[in-house]
Design a binder for these strands. Structure first.
Length: 274
DNA sequence: AACACGCCCTGCGCGC
DNA sequence: TGCGCGCAGGGCGTGT
């Protein structure tokens, strides 16, 4: 599934392609439940409204509408948002269609159905239950080494779990947590509160670097991720550790190891990362 | 409070 | 060829 860079690219694509278009209407294509059921009355709020802005919060896409609502989309592990021409024939796992006045339609497709589609009033966004607990954006000015140090010092759980917990920092998923720890020479097993301030500064800059590098390469495509135009990303070719179990560490040539933390794979070099 | 674990789903690649 | 298993960019609810 998309992490922060992939969602960012999708938002940028939507900005380019559908900003200022008008949603003629929208419809659910089945009655399957996503992470949560699609709101009963969502179609009535997507009837002849203009798209006035598109932004990202954590891994959520926010499509602001002229009727003071905001359409909120999360892609879960396997979700895709694809722009199609008006003769498009609906495919398996297409769950939602938005018809636009530029003769295109925006299709939400999600095989695993871990994503969600919902709608909220713009002035209630800050209090929206899905967003209320979210931490700070790693690409914002709020994310400083001091902030990261404060978070790390307050936890003794393994650092990788702290990086991936959206209460602390949003948008850093499994790939970018592994990659930023590798670049910082920190083991994913290290207790959060045993990281020195020097290491924290390094980690802070590497989190930002990895996310920005990935955005510049169009994100990472493992399987499902596509831009709104259906293109893959390229950052997967630049992974140091993610998915490279038993391959050589690009620094010391020893084997990259895969372990499981909180039910998720962590990849790291036990020699380089302490 | 903090953490471990399991579940929500489908599809794919692997070993037998 | 076919079946079962494990695994996948996330996030949440439950139990200890």
């Amino acid at each position: 599934m998309p992490e922060l860079p992939e969602v960012e690219i999708i938002c940028q694509g939507l900005q380019t392609k559908i900003l200022n278009t008008i949603i003629l209407n929208a419809e659910r294509l089945n009655n399957l439940k996503l992470r949560q059921a699609i709101d009963e009355d969502i179609e009535s709020k997507l009837d002849n409204v203009k798209i006035i802005n598109i932004t990202r919060r954590a891994k959520y896409i926010q499509i602001f509408l002229s009727n003071n609502y905001v359409l909120i989309i999360h892609l879960g592990m396997s979700g895709k948002l694809l722009l199609k021409s008006s003769d498009y024939i609906t495919q398996k796992h297409d769950h939602f269609a938005i018809y636009l006045n530029n003769h295109e339609l925006l299709i939400y497709n999600d095989p695993r159905r871990f994503g969600l589609i919902t709608i909220a009033k713009q002035d209630e966004l800050a209090e929206f239950p899905l967003f209320k607990h979210l931490g700070i954006e790693p690409l914002s000015e709020e994310f400083t080494a001091q902030y990261l140090a404060k978070i790390l010092q307050s936890k003794k759980q393994p650092i990788k779990l702290t990086l991936m917990d959206n209460v602390n920092i949003v948008g850093v998923g499994n790939i970018y947590a592994c990659e930023s720890l590798y670049l910082s020479k920190i083991s994913p097993l290290t207790s959060s509160n045993s990281i020195s301030f020097e290491q924290t500064q390094l980690l802070h800059s590497n989190i930002i670097k990895v996310l920005k590098d990935s955005i510049n390469k169009g994100g990472s495509t493992l399987k499902d991720y596509r831009t709104v135009s259906g293109e893959t990303g390229y950052f997967q070719n630049n992974f140091y550790v993610y998915g490279r179990e038993k391959n050589n560490c690009l620094t010391c040539s020893r084997n990259i190891v895969r372990i499981v933390q909180a039910g998720r794979s962590s990849f790291y070099c036990p020699n380089c990362q302490k």
